[in-house]
Design a protein around this nucleic acid. Structure first.
Lengths: 350, 350
DNA sequence: CCGATTTGTGAGAGCGCTCCCACGCGGTCA
DNA sequence: TGACCGCGTGGGAGCGCTCTCACAAATCGG
C-alpha cells in the first residue's frame, strides 16, 4: 500500500510484505540514500534537519538495516564467537562457563556485538566449528577451556582472526593474546598452606593433563613439596567435574591411604572429593585437610566449606573481552597477555 | 601472487591477502561464475568435468563462500536462534536447557544450520533480543521457557518469523507451532499416586505462576485433590531452581505442618525440598511422600531417589526442531502442535 | 570582498553472491 | 529433414548497503 505515483520500475517487494530498505527510508525522508545511511550510522556530517527526517522515516517504516548487505561492504559481521571446546554436559554444569559467558556478553553487547556460543566437543563437531570460524561469520573469537589436542591456537593464529584465549594456550603463545592466572603460584600457595598446618603427606587431585591450568597447578604443588623435601608421588588426574573429582580422590586414597592433605585443582572436583572422604569416614580437616581452586560459589556450600584459591574469573573474562575489542578496533596490535593472581580464601576445609 | 597475465582491472584484494572469491575459483577452474556457483551448491545441471574442475579450484584456493553475499541474495542466513528468556544462572544450572540445546543443535546442524543461543533475562536485554530477532539475522527461532510477561509469542507471530515453542505459549497459541507435554495429566498422576499410597494431606510446591508448565501441573494437582474431596489450599510457588524449591518447601511446611505428601513441580525444586525435609528430621517417604517432575538425571541421585514424571525432553526438542525445519522448508504451513505424555517413574520418594 | 576552507549532499561504484534467461548443442520424434 | 526437447553453460542483473568522490553552499580569515 505504498503510493506508486511515480512511474519508476520497482521491485515487487516494495508494495508487498518485504521489509523496508534504505532506499525507501531515503525517499520518505526526502534525502539521498547516502545521507540516510550517514544519518543512521552515527550521523556525522548530517544536518539536524536531515537527521530528523531520516529518524522519522525509520520510525514510520519500522526500518532495520539488512545485516547481510551491511557486512558485505563493511566486511564486519558485528558478532563474536565464544568458543568452548568441551562436551555440553560440562559447559552446562560448571559455573565457570556461566560466569564467563555472562561477563563476555555484557562487555561486548555494550558495543553492539552479538556473542555466538560455540560448543564443540572433539570430533567432527570440531571440524564444523573450524569451518564456521573460517567462514567470515564472525569478527573475532574468545576461546575458553582450550585443550592440547584441539590446535585451536594454531588454527586461529594461522587464520589471522582476532582472538583472545582465557587460559594460556599450549602453542602459538607468541602469536595470540591471552589472559590467565598464575596457576603455578596458586598450586604452590595451596600446598604451602597445608604444609604450614602440619600436613606431611600431601597428595593432589590434579586437573586434566592436557590443559595448561591443570598442568601449572600441578607444577606448583610439585615445587612446594620439593622445596619442603617431601615426596611428589601422590598424583591422580581428574577432569574438572564433580564425579571425576570423586573418582580421582577415591583412587588417590586407595593408592596412598596415609595422606593427611589433598590439593584439589578445582572446587567442583573438591566437592566430589569431600563426598568420598565423608563416605570413608575421614573427617575434614581433622584427619585430612583439603584445598579447592576457583571459588565460584560452590566452595562456600560444600561440607565443610572449602579453603580455596579464588580466580578472578569475572575480571579475566572482562579483560579478555577488552583485549578482543582492542584487536577489532586497532587492526593489528601485538599479542598481549595479562596474568592475574589467585588469592587465598580460607574456610573450614584446611 | 596470482598471475595477472591479462589486463583486466582487478580489485587490489585479488593478489593481496583477502580471501578468494567465487570469481577467482571460476577463473581457476576455467568456467563461468554461474557454473562455479552451481557446482558448489549441490551441483545439479553441472557436467562431471566442470564439477571436478571447480572442486579442485575450491580446494586449491581454500575457498569459503562469503555468507553475507550469499544471504543477501538468498534471503536466508542459515542460522536459527534458540531463545531462552531466563537469567543465565538458571540456564546454566538446569540440565533441561543443556539437553534441549544439545538435541536442537544436533538436529539442525545436520542440515547445516547454525544455532545461536539467545539468553535474555527480562529488562532491556529483552529489547535487544527482539531487535536481533527482527533484524533478519536468523531464519527462525525455537523458544523455550517462555513466560507470560515476555510477549514473545505475540511478537514472533506478528513478525511472521518461523518459530516453534517448547512448552505451550500463553497467547497466540493459534498462530505459532509448539510442542508440549500434558502437564495437567502429569500433575494429576503424581497426586493420585500419593493418594493411592494413603496420603490425605497433600501440598504442592508449584512452578512459577507465569509459566504454562507451572500452572498446568498445579491444575492437575487441584483436579486430583478435588475429585478426592480433599482441600487444595496447601500451595506455594517456586521458581524451578533448587534454592527456590527449598524455600518454597520450608514455607509450605511452615503454613501446613500436617502435610503427609508433597507434589513438587520439578526435580530440581524437589531436590531442594528433600534437603529441607531432611534438615527438619522428616523421613521420606515414611513421614511424608514426595514426587518430582522431569526426570533428567537429578531425580536418581537425590536422597532418597525421586519418584517423578518423566518428560521426554529429548523427543520434544527433536520434534520442535523438526517443526521449525518444516516451516523453513515449506514456506507457510499451518501452526502445528504436538503433545507428549509424561510417564511415571517410581523410585523411593513416593 | 575575494580566495580558502568547511560542511552537507547525492551520484554512482561496487561488495560477492545467486538466479533468471538466452543460447548452442546433440538427440528424438513425426 | 525440420521442429522440438532437454542439458550444460555463460552473460548479466540485482540483492541492500557503505563509501569515495565531486560539487554546491555556507563560513571563514585577511
Amino acid at each position: 500500500m505504498v503510493d506508486d505515483t511515480d512511474a519508476h520500475p520497482e521491485p515487487p517487494s516494495a508494495g508487498t510484505g518485504g521489509s523496508p530498505t534504505l532506499e525507501e527510508v531515503a525517499r520518505l525522508a526526502g534525502v539521498s540514500r547516502a545521507t540516510a545511511s550517514r544519518a543512521i550510522n552515527g550521523g556525522s556530517r548530517v544536518s539536524a534537519r536531515a537527521q530528523q527526517a531520516v529518524d522519522d522515516a525509520v520510525r514510520r517504516l519500522g526500518y532495520t538495516p539488512n545485516p547481510a548487505a551491511r557486512s558485505l561492504v563493511t566486511r564486519r559481521t558485528d558478532s563474536v564467537a565464544l568458543v568452548v571446546p568441551e562436551p555440553d554436559e560440562r559447559v552446562f554444569s560448571d559455573p565457570f562457563f556461566a560466569r564467563t559467558l555472562h561477563v563476555v556478553t555484557s562487555v561486548l553487547s555494550a558495543r553492539d556485538l552479538q556473542v555466538v556460543l560455540l560448543i564443540a566437543q572433539p570430533g567432527d563437531e570440531e571440524h564444523r566449528m573450524l569451518r564456521y570460524l573460517r567462514g567470515r561469520h564472525i569478527d573475532g573469537a574468545i576461546v575458553v577451556s582450550h585443550h592440547r589436542s584441539d590446535s585451536l591456537s594454531d588454527h586461529l593464529a594461522a587464520l589471522g582472526l582476532p582472538c583472545t584465549f582465557i587460559g594460556r594456550p599450549w602453542t602459538s603463545t607468541d602469536r595470540v593474546s591471552y589472559v590467565d592466572t598464575d596457576n603455578r603460584a596458586g598450586g604452590r600457595e595451596a600446598t604451602r598452606l597445608l604444609l604450614d598446618r602440619g600436613c606431611r603427606r600431601i597428595g593432589t587431585v590434579a586437573g586434566p593433563a592436557d590443559m595448561t591450568a591443570g598442568r601449572d597447578r600441578l607444577e606448583g604443588w610439585r615445587e612446594a613439596l620439593g622445596d619442603a623435601g617431601l615426596p611428589t608421588d601422590a598424583v591422580v588426574h581428574g577432569d574438572f567435574t564433580e564425579l571425576g573429582g570423586a573418582d580421582a580422590c577415591a583412587a588417590l586414597l586407595d593408592a596412598h591411604p596415609d595422606l593427611d592433605g589433598i590439593v584439589v585443582a578445582s572446587d567442583l572436583m573438591a566437592s566430589g572429593a569431600l563426598r568420598v572422604l565423608s563416605a570413608q569416614g575421614r573427617r575434614v580437616p581433622t584427619d585430612l585437610a583439603v584445598t579447592g581452586y576457583d571459588d565460584l560459589g560452590i566452595a562456600e556450600h560444600t561440607d565443610p566449606p572449602l579453603t580455596t584459591l579464588r580466580n578472578p574469573i569475572g575480571e579475566m573474562a572482562e579483560e579478555a573481552a577488552r583485549l578482543l575489542l582492542e584487536q577489532l578496533d586497532g587492526g593489528l596490535t601485538l599479542p598481549r597477555r595479562v596474568i592475574f593472581s589467585p588469592t587465598l580464601v580460607r574456610r573450614a576445609s584446611a
